[in-house]
Each structure stands twice: as C-alpha cells, then as structure tokens.
Amino acid sequence: MALSTEDIKKIAHLARIEVSDSDAAATLSKLTGILGLIEQMQAVNTDGIVPMSHSQDVVQRLRDDVVTKTNQREAFQKISPAIGNGSEARAVDGGLYLVPKVIE
C-alpha cells in the first residue's frame, strides 16, 4: 500500500500531531517502511490461527463491584492545567474542569 503526503497529514491531524511539510517527507518514508514490513508479514499463511489480541496468553482478571475510590477532586484539580490569559487564567470553575470553548 502506497502512502501519500496527504495521508501523512490526515493521520497527523487525527492524532492531533503537528507535522511540518519538511518533516512530512521523512515521516512518509518511515511509515512506508513499516507498511512494507506489515506486507511481508501478511504474506505468511495464517489460516486457522486465532488472531492474537494480546502478547500474554492469559485472560482478564475481574474486579468485584465495590466502591474503592474516594473523592480526591481537590488534589486532582490543584494540578489541572489553567487556560486563559495572565491573571484571568484558571483551571476550574464550580468543580468543573475548564477547557477552551467547544461547540458542535
């Protein structure tokens, strides 16, 4: 599968990573290399083999449905990043974490 610089830009955007035009070319060749490796692996016959979803051959341990967490809002909100300018900047309001306005 051949990737284009367009694809690189789209993938970067989906991951919210900034990739400059000059970096895009280098990233393109690295990613193409990875895809080449995957193509090589895809050539192996895997008929009848269950796809592996985890590197360890064990199953998920389950937790009892009992409340174990206490309210640590104050501690968490002390370290939450402030937004806004200078003295206006703040991280929380009325217990809510603040982020730049998002509207659909």
Partner: peptide
C-alpha cells in the same frame, strides 16, 4: 452497577461535579 466499568469509582447519579471522577 455500583462502580465504573474500569475503576472502583461510584456511579451514583447527580453527585457534585467531578467528585466521582477518580484518577482512572
């Protein structure tokens, strides 16, 4: 359930904002 799917934080409806939001 009493707790969240991946942590032991309570799921009770209507609590004060973020008082049931643990580190997970």
């Amino acid at each position: 359930t009493n707790t969240k799917i991946f942590s032991g934080a309570s799921t009770t409806y209507g609590a004060e904002p973020n008082t049931q939001a643990c580190e997970v």
